[in-house]
Amino acid sequence: MPLKAKPKRIGSAKAVIDLRLYVAGQTPRSLAAISNLKRICDDHRGNRYRIEVIDLVKNPALARDHQILAIPTLVRSLPVPIRKIIGDLSDEQQVLIGLNIVEPLRKKDKKAGPAASAARSAAGRG
């Protein structure tokens, strides 16, 4: 699924995040991960996200190309740096930390520039 539009302000809370979820077939764990991810994104990102679900059973070569080992794996390819979250995403807090969206939809984030985002991303990593 190609990107629809380039995010204008990478790293800011308003920027669109690109997410790819790698699953293997319609296993309960995969389905759980998909629904968990959708819920978290809807709750915290509104419409500023794009999710691409990749079924490795249909596209096995992608597992190698994208260095996927654990299933399910959620990859945030934009904004950089790339982040990976493994598991069925049932732990919402970990997903938010992993995606670096700690604060849900706060107004003050409007003014947050790349520097603030970098600081946050460092904090999120720790």
Partner: peptide
């Protein structure tokens, strides 16, 4: 660069191996 959230397995390894 890996964050863990919930249960997972290494199916990706199996898929790669099988492929």
């Amino acid at each position: 660069e890996i964050q863990q959230s919930g249960d997972y397995d290494l199916e990706g390894l199996f898929i790669r191996l099988q492929n």
